[in-house]
Design a protein around this nucleic acid. Structure first.
Lengths: 272, 272
DNA sequence: ACCAATTTGTCCGTATGTATG
DNA sequence: TCATACATACGGACAAATTGG
C-alpha cells in the first residue's frame, strides 16, 4: 500500500485528512510519487529484476489501492527515469537504464546545453577524458574491442565522401574507445562530451573536406597503437586528433568561447 | 496543438481514426509524450526560459486541446527530466536541470548500481578523473574556490570524531575540486564516481579511526598544492589519498571486485 | 485573520484502438 | 476469425491547499 492510501475515502485525501484517528505523519508527497518511489525501491533493492513484467495498470491499481490516473502518473516518472519500459505490446516491464543510446546521455547533454557550457569547456574535458580513456584502454582492451574499432575505421574509410556519416562514425569511434577501456563509470562520463563535440565534425568536414583524411589516419593510428599497447603513441594521436578538431572548428569561423548551440544540438539529439 | 489531438473526437482517438478526411500520417506516439516533447522543445530552443511560469494545468489543457490527465502525465515526464519544477506553491515553472544536488547525478549513480559495476571500476575511474580534475583545477582555480576548499578542510578537522560527517565532507571536498576546475562537463562526469565512492568512507573510518587524520592531512596538502599551483604535489597527494581509500576499503574486509552494494547505496542516495 | 476563488491531487466512469490468444 | 484484455484518452467530480482581497 502507498502510505495511507488504502484507507482513504472516496474523494481526494490530502495532508490533513487523517487527523481523526491518530497522529499519522502528514503525507506532503503526492501519491503518484509514493507509488513511483515504492516501485523504484523494489527495483534498486533487486526484488524486481530487469525484464520482469510489472503487471497491468489494473493490477497495480489493486495492489496499491490508488486510482488508475495516479498509477499512470507514477508510471510516467518511472518511464522517464528509465527504470520501467514498455515492450512492443505496450506492456510494462522492469528495464535497466542504458546510459548510452538511451535517454540518460541525452539528459546529461541537454543539461549542459541549457547551462550554456562553452565549446572550450567541452573541448578541455573531452581532451582530458579521451586521454584517460585511451590510457585505460591500453591496459584493458580485448581483441574483440580492437576488432570493433577496426571495423569502425574501415567503415569510415568507405564513407569518406559523406560528411554526416563520417561524423556519426567518429562519435561511435570515441564511444568504442570508452568501451575498450572496459570501465562503465568512465563510459558514462564520456557520453556527454562525445555527444556534444563530435557531431560538430559534420559541418567542419563539409567546409574542410581535406580533414577527412587526417581524421581517418588518426583513428587508424590510435587503433594500431592500441594493438601494440603503445601508450605514448596512443596519447600522441589522441591529442593530435582532438587538436585537429579544434583547429577545424576555429577555421570554420566558430569561437571556442561561444556556448554550445541550442538549435543545432537539438536537431542532433532528436535524431536519436 | 499536439499532433491531431485538437480535432479528435470525444472518446479515445487512436492510430486509424483520422482516415475519413485525409491520409494524415499515423500518430504512433501517445499524446502525453507529444505534449511533453512540445514543451521540451520550447525550453531547449530558449523560447521558454528558466524561471518562467508554465501556466496552470487548465491553461495547458486549453492550449493543447487535450485532457487534463494527459497534461498531467506529460508534466510527470518533464518533472522527472528536471525541465519543469513545482515551486513552493506547487505552481509549474521552467527549471534548468541541476546536475549536482539534483536528480541527474542520482540517476547516473542508480544506472551504475543496477549494472552492477564493481568497486574496482569505480576506483579506476575515480582515480583517473580525480587526477584530471586536480590538473584542470591547477590552471583554473580562483581564490574563492580555494577559500571554499579551505573552509571544507577546516570543517572536516572539527568533525574529526564523527565518521558520517567526515564522509559527507569528503564527498563535498571532491565535488569542490571539480568546481575549482571550472569545467561543468568535468563536474558532471565526476558526479557518479564521487557519489558512489566517497560515502563508503563512513564505514571505513568507523572501522579504522586512524584514517581520519590521514584523510584530513591529504585534503590539506591538496589545497596547499593548489594554492602554490604545484601540479606535481597535487597529483601526488590525490593519488595518495585515493590509494588510502582503497587500502582502507580492503582492510575493512571488502573485495574490490564486488559490485557496488545496492542496499547500502540506496540508503545513501535517499538521504539526498 | 476570515472568506471566496483558483488550482492541484485524486477518484470515477466510459469509449476506442490494438495486441494476444 | 473473433473475443478478450489492456493501454490510451476523454469527461466530470470533489477535497484540500494556496492565493488574494
Amino acid at each position: 500500500m502507498v502510505g495511507t492510501a488504502a484507507t482513504a475515502p472516496k474523494g481526494g485525501w490530502g495532508t490533513m485528512s487523517e487527523m481523526s484517528e491518530r497522529f499519522e505523519r502528514i503525507t506532503a508527497t503526492p501519491a503518484y510519487r509514493l507509488f513511483a518511489d515504492a516501485i523504484e525501491s523494489e527495483i534498486i533493492a533487486g526484488r524486481l529484476r530487469p525484464g520482469e513484467p510489472l503487471g497491468t495498470e489494473a493490477e497495480l491499481v489493486k495492489q496499491f489501492g490508488v486510482n488508475r490516473s495516479t498509477v499512470r502518473e507514477g508510471i510516467r516518472l518511472l518511464e522517464q527515469g528509465g527504470l520501467v519500459h514498455r515492450d512492443s505490446s505496450r506492456r510494462l516491464s522492469v528495464a535497466l537504464p542504458q546510459y548510452h543510446h538511451d535517454r540518460l546521455a541525452s539528459r546529461m547533454s541537454r543539461a549542459l546545453i541549457l547551462h550554456e557550457v562553452t565549446f572550450r569547456e567541452l573541448w578541455d574535458a573531452a581532451m582530458a577524458l579521451a586521454l584517460v580513456a585511451i590510457d585505460l584502454a591500453m591496459t584493458h582492451a580485448t581483441a574483440e574491442a580492437i576488432v570493433e574499432l577496426d571495423a569502425n575505421v574501415a567503415l569510415t574509410a568507405e564513407a569518406a565522401g559523406d560528411a554526416a556519416r563520417v561524423a556519426e562514425l567518429d562519435t561511435e569511434f570515441h564511444r568504442l574507445i570508452g568501451k575498450a577501456a572496459h570501465n562503465r563509470v568512465l563510459q558514462l562520463a564520456l557520453e556527454p562530451s562525445n555527444m556534444l563535440i563530435f557531431p560538430t565534425t559534420e559541418p567542419i568536414l563539409t567546409t574542410i573536406p581535406e580533414g577527412t583524411g587526417r581524421l581517418i589516419d588518426a583513428h587508424r593510428q590510435i587503433v594500431e597503437a592500441l594493438c601494440r599497447r603503445d601508450r605514448e603513441a596512443g596519447r600522441l594521436w589522441v591529442e593530435r586528433h582532438l587538436r585537429d578538431w579544434r583547429r577545424g572548428f576555429e577555421r570554420t569561423g566558430h569561437d571556442l568561447d561561444q556556448p554550445v548551440d541550442r538549435v543545432y544540438m537539438q536537431s542532433v539529439m532528436s535524431r536519436l
